[in-house]
Amino acid sequence: MTKNNEFIRIPHNAYIIVGDGRKALFLRNEGNQTTPRLKTEQVLRNDNPPTREQGSDQPGRSFASVGARRSAMEQTDWQEIGEQRFARTIADALEGLARDRDIPGFVIAAPPRTLAELRRLLDTNVKVRIIAEIDKDLTGHPVEDIERRLSAA
């Protein structure tokens, strides 16, 4: 994989996926390898409120089979579960693109946790087409800024 400080050559019609646990942008390079010109093809959103807004009950307690010892169970992180499900949605969309279109490659930009989850979920047909992985959250950046970052990467 290409590291953050190396120059990334993004072929014409390659897809750049910029995502995190809440939003994913599917951008297609209409430019050339040295001067990307990105066009938004699809935006996926995950309506995933914080855990405090999703879970209303207190964490459960367990009782020892012998004696009177009790322990608290860890509270479920509903937001993290929602982000993992969203990573599956992104992976499914990438698999569909790889299967249905002749795409020369993918560049994936995501925070480290999301990137790791995507690596775990991606099909081999997608993995072999990955040109570069960028472990940065660029989701909130305008497309022009993403273009600049990729051409300077």
Rank of each mutant, 00 (worst) to 15 (best):
W78H: 09
K23E: 06
G105M: 03
R37Y: 15
A72I: 07
L44Q: 06
D123Y: 12
L38G: 04
W78I: 08
N5T: 09
I10G: 00
A109G: 04
K3W: 14
R22L: 13
K3A: 15
L115E: 08
G55A: 09
L121F: 10
D100E: 10
P112D: 05
A152E: 12
R129Q: 09
F63L: 07
L118Q: 04
S62L: 14
I90G: 02
K3S: 12
A98M: 02
T89C: 10
T2N: 12
D137M: 01
H141C: 14
T124R: 09
I16K: 02
A91F: 11
E53M: 08
S151N: 06
K127P: 08
P36C: 02
R99Q: 08
A132N: 04
T124S: 14
I81T: 08
T35Q: 14
V143F: 15
P111K: 02
R129G: 07
V107M: 00
P112H: 10
N125V: 07
A132M: 03
I134Y: 15
V107A: 00
R61I: 07
L121M: 06
T76A: 13
Q33P: 09
F63V: 06
I130V: 04
A110Q: 01
L25D: 00
T139F: 11
A152Q: 11
H12E: 03
G60I: 05
I90R: 00
A93Y: 14
L97D: 00
Q54W: 07
S151M: 11
R9Q: 11
